[in-house]
Design a protein around this nucleic acid. Structure first.
Length: 302
DNA sequence: TAGATACCTTATAG
DNA sequence: ACTATAAGGTATC
């Protein structure tokens, strides 16, 4: 087992591990005691586990915990670089916040969860997670991903326990729709299977969107079954590093109606462009994620 | 091309 | 208790 620590003082801005992994961006982390999405008193050292799918080499496990002044990690591999990527530790939070509009609700959201960072999860698990997110609550989306790992993931031994990595495209393509429906995926089951088939066959790969101009990347991702503009924006923001992407979900649409009515242009593409500019352009997705988490957590009545 | 409707399942509100 | 509603939407017509 390898281990290490990241000094928080060395980071550009704060880090709030719980907010980062429990804000509906990533569904690939499990809390050690299993009690996610509950308010916990202060911070205090809760640990989260993350398992990698087999992409190249063996599947891996990393456990990370926030303590006074550091992120302490233990893993089946040298996880330092991976954590920087996964948790957005290189993002200059103060600089990003400076690009956001100085509206009261935006300030409240940043203050409430200061230190939350945008994750960069691997593309295939993100694709599947957000296909599953349609018309679903955050806690249940997470439960679905746990079920997929449990039923179709490769086992990994770590620190005396057995963990399961997120399933490969081939594993989910091989699953039957009935198998997936038994995991309570509902109408998302065929979407997951057919999108996994596209990746497993080599006909498409969410990784291929990386580096394309934002509009082209979003367009590319909508070829997957169960991926419309909103889910495509989630994959761009939470996996591929397009920090300007603003997923137009029910929460942000309510926010637009309440605070930015001029941005409602009646269709996704135009509304998306308008709110992206209003929220500061290049890092609009960061501000969107703070607003989403703040409002969803009941920070302000709408 | 824009608009309406069906879709799995379940936590939560009333 | 029991029903209606809505949940980080998308595909289809």
């Amino acid at each position: 087992m390898e281990r290490g620590r990241v000094d928080i003082e060395s980071l550009p801005g704060a880090i709030d591990l719980q907010a980062t992994v429990e804000s509906g961006q990533s569904y690939l982390w499990d809390r050690e005691d299993g009690r996610m999405y509950e308010r916990t008193a202060a911070s205090g050292g809760d640990a989260w586990y993350w398992t990698t799918p087999r992409v190249a080499g063996d599947p891996q496990v990393v456990r990370v915990r926030q303590t006074d002044g550091a992120l302490e990690w233990e893993a089946t591999f040298d996880a330092e670089d991976a954590l920087y990527t996964l948790l957005g530790l290189g993002d200059d939070l103060p600089a990003i916040r400076a690009t956001a509009p100085a509206d009261a609700v935006v300030e409240e959201a940043y203050d409430a969860y200061w230190g939350m960072r945008i994750v960069r999860d691997p593309p295939f698990p993100t694709l599947i997670s957000f296909i599953c997110s349609a018309q679903m609550r955050v806690g249940r989306i997470h439960g679905m991903q746990q079920a997929l790992r449990r039923e179709f993931g490769e086992p990994v031994e770590f620190d005396g326990g057995t963990y399961r990595a997120f399933p490969t495209p081939a594993a989910l393509a091989t699953a039957s729709e009935a198998d997936l429906r038994e995991l309570r995926l509902g109408y998302r089951a065929p979407y997951v299977k057919r999108s996994a088939e596209l990746v497993a066959s080599g006909d498409a790969d969410p990784e291929s969107a990386r580096g394309l101009p934002y509009g082209d990347a979003r367009e590319y991702l909508t070829q997957f079954v169960g991926v419309g503009d909103k889910v495509a924006d989630c994959i761009l923001l939470f996996s591929l590093g397009y920090l300007e992407a603003v997923p137009l979900d029910t929460w942000i649409q309510t926010t637009i109606a309440e605070f930015y009515p001029d941005c409602d242009r009646g269709n996704y593409a135009d509304t998306s462009r308008a709110i992206r500019e209003t929220l500061g352009g290049e890092y609009a997705g960061y501000t969107q994620t703070y607003l989403f988490h703040y409002l969803r957590s009941g920070g302000r009545d709408l």
